[in-house]
Nucleic acid binder design. Structure first.
Lengths: 343, 343
DNA sequence: TTGTAGGATGGAATTGATTCCATCTGCCTG
DNA sequence: CAGGCAGATGGAATCAATTCCATCCTACAA
């Protein structure tokens, strides 16, 4: 009979080759306490020769930890979440852990499916950007801590790290008001999203506090729907003098539409967006935005998770990080208080 | 003695509660062949009541598959790789697998470290964007197939999916030449990167074939070094009439510098970049770029991997996907063949 | 009525590492 | 020189699943 092809060597193979017991090999792998230097060398030689790598599956079967955390986000390609993923991956690496990546497309069903898959993987912990329909029930037998990223978990306290959406929207709106804008249109995307809601609230409250008219926010998805919807605000009696866009893709589209319609920024309409983007400062004019410390937010989330893992205690703390209003000129800065412009 | 707190129920717990053997529970979990519907129902009830989820670690200890693939990229936050990661994650999900994410920052040492970690995880396969110093030795006892993404593995045949870098650079340069450019500066980043080299070659060959002077390519890292280095090419006897930027970040910086120096695009200097970016069409003027089908490239890589997993055969095939030159006007299109401009 | 095919089921080995516990060997101390 | 102590080591149980194999039972055909 042909000798069995052992594709991957196991600990026992190392033990036999080195002429020692399994326990000794295990000791060598794990730092080598109470192992003579001679044995140590022999075992390491055998490990080298066989090309042995301990099987993590077997390890985590016995030990408690899998050294793996999960990361569930709506979209991996999204700039916010890929930046966050990079930061989280880095923190995980520093803690000797790996990251299992999963995407939901904001679908609660997909989210649930991914959570259940990760439960089977016995991950040590999870970082989750919950969908608005997230259901606490899926964690009933999870057995690991969860930290929320960018959004709180709906209807349930949970450790969370996010940016100050309300404050950011407030700052952006105040900036517009300070520069003389009186009729500000808030353009949003999905109104079910927590971040959208918080930003809209911050905007509304500020407009109201300034005694300005509160315009219903405009919800659009793509360029074309935005263009169609925005048209009536560009001229005539409904004409606005500023746009506060609560989301990146919309800011960019608003900019395109204004340019296309030959409406000058900020002279005719001021524009401020939420979330910074690569070329915001290279546009004509450069666009003011609320910048979120994305990597910091993600790092905080990851640190909260690993802290929970190390202490065994979960603190339902919400860490809200300050955002920064970046002045670039698209709101009429530097030209003194804005005067009412002729229509 | 207090009853032991069983944090997570195991298969045996389900078996006991349902009053059946372990093997039966296993059968139920795995599709339920040869299980009476009565037993089936009882087991499922027990599973439900206990909130049981099979332990993937134990599963993959016995079975061959971990249902996990690795993805190692230089940077997770990078637009190219996060888009690729999203596509790969999606293909993996369709195959019932999860993705373990790791980053190298283009450091061979880090790359090696991540590979070894993934070997311990007994991943089924790996998708890797190898660093230029990648060492085939680290896979000696890996025991899983590897597919390269975006770059071939240095000095070793390996299944690979990437864009046609040479062809893309050729198309971009030909476009410039067609539009009358005669002195084209190629701006690059890291000259060790395979993609950079291929693009530079494509550019050089095309310039030479057109009988134009071959300018030494300019290697820069950030905005300031680019500005300093570029200055001498903007005026005087070294003056160029076109820039071919082989990398996104550099394209953007070149655009900024030209604008800042009041050099009109494309009248004074034409500009074409490699890799499309979100606002390329919103700049003044919109910028021509070579667009890579990023998601397709990644999908192909993932599909090659899963095919290897299913058939057990690894084909060392290199899949080169066509890239697309996007005309936007930054190269003087539509104004007919370019004439020599007065200096 | 009986033989048997085949579905249903459980027992027990297996997988790879960890870890408790027992044993053994030197060497130091009284 | 004896008692011990500490370090070194191996045996075997354990973790949670899968799976081979044996057994049992029932229904159907001869």
């Amino acid at each position: 009979m042909a000798p069995k092809v052992r594709s991957v060597p196991a600990l026992m193979d190392v033990a036999r080759r080195a002429g020692v017991g399994a326990a000794t090999v295990s000791r060598v792998i794990n730092g080598g306490q109470n192992v003579s230097s001679k044995t140590m060398a022999a075992v390491q030689k055998a490990i080298e020769e066989l090309g042995y790598h301990p099987n993590q599956a077997a390890r985590s079967l016995k030990g408690a930890r899998t050294k793996t955390i999960g990361l569930i986000v709506p979209s991996v390609a999204d700039h916010f979440f890929s930046t966050a993923a990079a930061a989280i991956q880095e923190v995980a690496r520093a803690h000797g852990s790996l990251v299992l990546l999963a995407a939901t497309d904001n679908l609660p069903a997909r989210e649930r499916e991914q959570v259940l898959t990760l439960i089977q993987r016995r991950i040590d912990g999870l970082i989750l950007a919950p969908s608005d329909g997230a259901d606490i029930g899926m964690f009933k037998h999870a057995g690991f801590p969860v930290v929320c990223l960018d959004r709180p978990f709906p209807h349930h306290p949970m450790p969370t790290a996010l940016g100050d959406n309300y404050g950011g929207a407030k700052a952006a709106t105040e900036h517009l008001v300070r520069n003389g804008c009186r009729r500000i249109l808030c353009m949003g995307g999905d109104r079910k999203l927590f971040t959208s809601q918080a930003r809209v609230r911050g905007h509304h409250d500020t407009v109201q506090a300034a005694g300005l008219p509160v315009l219903a926010e405009l919800h659009v998805q793509d360029y074309f729907s935005a263009e169609a919807a925005l048209r009536r605000y560009l001229h005539g009696k409904d004409r606005i003098d500023a746009i506060f866009s609560i989301k990146n893709a919309i800011t960019v589209n608003a900019y395109r539409i204004l340019r296309q319609s030959n409406i000058s920024i900020p002279q005719s309409i001021a524009l401020v967006g939420y979330d910074d983007f690569e070329l915001a400062d290279a546009l004509e004019p450069p666009i003011c935005v609320v910048r979120q410390p994305v990597a910091d937010i993600a790092r905080r989330a990851a640190e909260m998770l690993f802290q929970a893992l190390e202490t065994g205690k979960v603190k339902n703390r919400t860490v809200t990080l300050d955002v920064e209003l970046v002045h670039r000129g698209s709101c009429g800065e530097g030209s003194g208080p804005r005067k009412a412009r002729p229509r």
